[in-house]
């Protein structure tokens, strides 16, 4: 169901819980074609993107009457490594929504922030995402 800007802003999405399985981390590093042996124990830096917060993605996707979307940018901050075997809990919220005109016509810029916590309750990473709808 589509929501209004007012109800979407700062609404808490999640938690979603993921087990960071060995095969998954291996497939992830292979997809980047990154042979660093470090990825046999910890996950590559962009692994948080695989820990999807589906409800947040759907809320961004279904908002407004735009027909398409693009990823405008992502900023990650790391506090602890995400290790193979960890259980990671993801939560997130939309912190800003604004319209502006660009080369694709009227665009909506949505900023969301996600937090990733491990099984010990330690914050391991944060991610700030810019989604563009047009």
């Amino acid at each position: 169901m589509a929501e209004s800007k007012e109800t979407l802003l700062n609404k808490e999405f999640g938690p979603v819980v993921y087990d960071v399985e060995k095969w998954w981390a291996k497939k992830f590093a292979e997809a980047i074609d990154d042979p660093n042996p470090a990825w046999q124990k910890v996950t590559p830096p962009t692994f948080p993107t695989a820990l999807i917060l589906d409800d947040l993605d759907k809320a961004i996707h279904s908002y407004g009457s735009y027909t398409a979307g693009l990823n405008g940018g992502n900023e990650l901050e790391y506090f602890k490594p995400i290790r193979i075997g960890d259980t990671i809990t993801v939560t997130g919220k939309i912190v800003n929504m604004k319209e502006r005109s660009g080369k694709l016509g009227t665009m909506l810029i949505i900023i969301s922030e996600l937090s990733y916590t491990n099984q010990k309750g330690e914050l391991v990473a944060k991610c700030r995402n810019t989604s563009i709808k047009y």
Binding site: D34, P45, G73, Y78
Partner: peptide, 20 residues
Amino acid sequence: GQMMTDWIGEKGTLVKLGAS
């Protein structure tokens, strides 16, 4: 991220990584 982790090696730590 691959470029940065290759460069900083085993004893380096990535603190922030972002792009537009």
